[in-house]
Design a protein around this nucleic acid. Structure first.
Lengths: 132, 132
DNA sequence: CAATCGCGGACTTTATGTATCTATAATAGT
DNA sequence: ACTATTATAGATACATAAAGTCCGCGATTG
């Protein structure tokens, strides 16, 4: 069980956008350069963030990606859910309204992790960085 | 990102062993029947639990698997680690002693989940079941 | 119109999970 | 000692998903 690399790329990109002073669109080429990843692949990932409403895109010359919502509100969990999906990590005994005790424990532990990720905002880390 | 089915099988098998009254070895055939999984595949998974020291095996007629340590001590985390491995879920910027702030957050959230899984013992759920 | 840039689909490659089969080794009962 | 039983390990097959590329379309700017 591993997070995909896409999640890593998404988190770092969002960190960059949150930490960025201006709200001008940033091209995917520039974002990709910083992470040693191909622009076309990164754009696929960023499209997910667009659909999740975290960022918005502008086509055409001078276009790119920029934050959509408030800088202060972006949490780790939102980003991860946008990329990895929101399904539970644990599939059990054909679970719907599972009465399985094991399943309940697994869900609870997962929720503990999500709570931490929901509580941690990108901006908390961005503030520790030099603003650009 | 998903837990493997193997983890599910391992958890259910351990639950069965912890909830079981006697400490007689149980054959993999019997354990597999209860979970609708092939015996040979399940045995592969159980071998991991053996190597992790959670259960012990007895070859030959009348053999099988039984708990090794104390029934009260078996935690969810031990089982999961035995099957999934203990590596971190999140790989970042070539992390060793990572100074990456994102990485630290991801580790902390993971730790929150593991803490829950470490604190929850199999026997807590087994006690709620009818002993066999 | 032309250059730029994101979007979407199709595709390839690689890795991992899931599972089966078979041979081997260990043990118990006769 | 022989046989039935049972776990272990290796090879193999298959399915699925991650990771990444390629290309054409549409939108925007100048």
């Amino acid at each position: 069980m591993k997070y995909s690399k896409a999640t890593n790329y998404a988190l770092h990109t969002m960190m960059y956008l949150v930490a960025s002073e201006t709200n001008k669109p940033v091209g995917v080429q520039q974002l990709a350069d910083k992470q040693d990843v191909s622009p076309t692949y990164l754009s696929k990932i960023l499209t997910k963030l667009v659909k999740a409403g975290l960022i918005e895109s502008a086509s055409g010359a001078g276009g790119g990606y920029r934050l959509k919502g408030r800088r202060e509100d972006v949490s780790f969990l939102e980003i991860i859910h946008a990329v990895e999906g929101t399904a539970s990590l644990f599939d059990c005994c054909g679970n719907t309204h599972s009465q399985c005790a094991i399943h309940r424990v697994m869900l609870a532990s997962e929720e503990a992790m999500e709570q931490k990720l929901r509580d941690t905002k990108m901006i908390e880390l961005a503030d520790a960085l030099p603003r650009k």
